[in-house]
Design a protein around this nucleic acid. Structure first.
Lengths: 112, 112
DNA sequence: AAGCGTAATGTTTGGCAGGATATAACGAAA
DNA sequence: TTTCGTTATATCCTGCCAAACATTACGCTT
């Protein structure tokens, strides 16, 4: 067995650059779990501002928004993952799994 | 056809982190072409310092050095790609080709 | 009307990777 | 012994991006 292994990063590119990546998808799942961008950000030690920008970027690049947001109101508002968001999450994880498989298999064939 | 496509980065990881990546391999090829680290760096608008560090990192992580260096002497010295370096370059490009193919094929299957 | 916690957005700060700069060591060739 | 362009290495400088901080808007609840 070799000292070396193949590694990489994967993302889905949209009109404005990155649409979905590992961190973005985890953020979406946290939003689903916590019901707000701010709670999701806190839960993963990300600044609210950064989280908000990521959500904004994803929504801008998606025909249907991935996250629906309510500002003001009971509890100050919140955010929820849309059906389109769920689909995006699934789509990314599916590609991510295949990608991990590829890296793992191709790693064995490294000749050095 | 979708507005989205899969993109990624690929590298070969060694004991100290990145061993070979796209930029590093191009640097190795430039060294083969120009016969010195400094000329190679100039040719790709990379600082000598940066290029030197990359070569040093690759050599440290390889059983056999990928680049042999001569300091002083005719023309001030120089550097050449070793057989081991050639093999490393080939190995990376081979994996890179497969990676590109994977990304391209998997991109078509994106459902969003 | 006041309070609450969130969304939304602007401004400032800080960390650090890489570039720029400087200088020494090197050794063949003239 | 001088010259030359390279390798080798330390130190300073800078541009960028994320984090930190600050503020406003919002609308339901009480």
């Amino acid at each position: 067995m070799s000292n070396y292994r193949l590694r990489g990063r994967l993302w889905i590119e949209g009109p404005e650059g990155t649409f979905l990546g590992y961190g973005r998808v985890v953020l979406l799942e946290r939003i689903r779990e916590h019901g707000s961008i701010s709670a999701a950000a806190r839960s993963m030690e990300m600044s609210y501002r950064h989280a908000w920008k990521l959500v904004d970027s994803m929504n801008r690049q998606s025909l249907q928004p991935v996250v629906e947001k309510v500002t003001g109101g009971k509890g100050g508002g919140g955010a929820k993952l849309t059906d389109s968001g769920e689909k995006a999450v699934d789509c990314f994880w599916s590609a991510y799994r295949d990608y991990k498989t590829f890296l793992s298999e191709r790693s064995q064939q490294l000749e050095l």
